[in-house]
């Protein structure tokens, strides 16, 4: 009889745990291929792209530094990574989002040379043992139906924009990504912070449309030679 009570207690506990897990909101399934919406497009509800990396509010020191930059050395012209801040605003951008079962969400870019692969870690905080990275260290969490991604540990190789604005190692991004209009679109909002390069945080918004097409093999050809 005592065994039966233990069994019953175990079952009740398991059921409570299961119910608690079920009551947690399930994150939306954002798996898929998406293509950026052009700046001219207005989505239902008046939603449209806004802001641009070119409009970042640079500090005086950053403006001075930018004058000395040769725009021919832009990583984008040489098939090098441009970093998430510029990449996600690029025209004709096409991405694939893969939530994996190992606690990550992977974002792949069709323009692989410039965008590469981003891995968003959903089950850990920022690591302190990582060196400066081209794509930074990204950790994510779900806030309702919004994926909030926090990225730091950037190196200083990528630029803020094609005009040559530079960022430092304190560069920090917060991205808020959510499906809208029944999952037909992704809304992408990114806020960049850099106390040295920017006078204040700057946010731009882009919309991506879910696509039924496959991601192609887009091999970068250098433009700057």
């Amino acid at each position: 009889m005592r065994d039966c009570f233990r069994f019953t207690a175990f079952l009740l506990f398991a059921a409570a745990q299961f119910a608690a897990a079920q009551s947690k909101p399930t994150p939306p399934d954002i798996t898929g291929v998406y293509e950026i919406v052009s700046d001219k497009t207005v989505l239902p509800g008046g939603l449209k792209n806004s802001g641009s990396p070119s409009a970042v509010p640079l500090s005086a020191a950053a403006k001075d530094q930018m004058k000395s930059v040769d725009v021919k050395t832009d990583p984008a012209l040489h098939c090098q990574p441009v970093g998430p801040f510029r990449m996600t605003a690029r025209e004709e951008n096409k991405i694939e989002v893969i939530p994996a079962t190992n606690g990550t969400i992977v974002m792949l870019f069709e323009d692989l040379s410039r965008g590469v692969m981003r891995t968003i870690y959903m089950a850990r905080g920022h690591r302190t043992d990582l060196g400066p990275l081209w794509l930074g260290d990204s950790v994510g969490k779900w806030e309702g139906d919004t994926l909030v991604v926090d990225t730091n540990s950037f190196n200083d190789q990528t630029w803020l924009n094609e005009e040559g604005a530079q960022h430092g190692d304190a560069f920090h991004l917060i991205e808020r990504i959510r499906p809208i209009l029944g999952g037909k679109y992704l809304e992408y909002k990114v806020t960049a912070e850099d106390p040295k390069a920017l006078v204040k945080p700057y946010t731009y918004t882009r919309y991506y449309e879910r696509s039924k097409t496959e991601i192609g093999q887009d091999n970068c050809v250098e433009d700057g030679e």
């Binding site: 893969i98 992977v106 792949l108 692989l112 590469v116 496959e214 991601i215």
Partner: peptide, 15 residues
């Protein structure tokens, strides 16, 4: 299935 090679610039991605 997506295979992403560590040498992403050269071997790239297979789908």
């Amino acid at each position: 299935i997506t295979m992403v090679f560590h040498e992403t610039n050269t071997a790239g991605v297979r789908r």
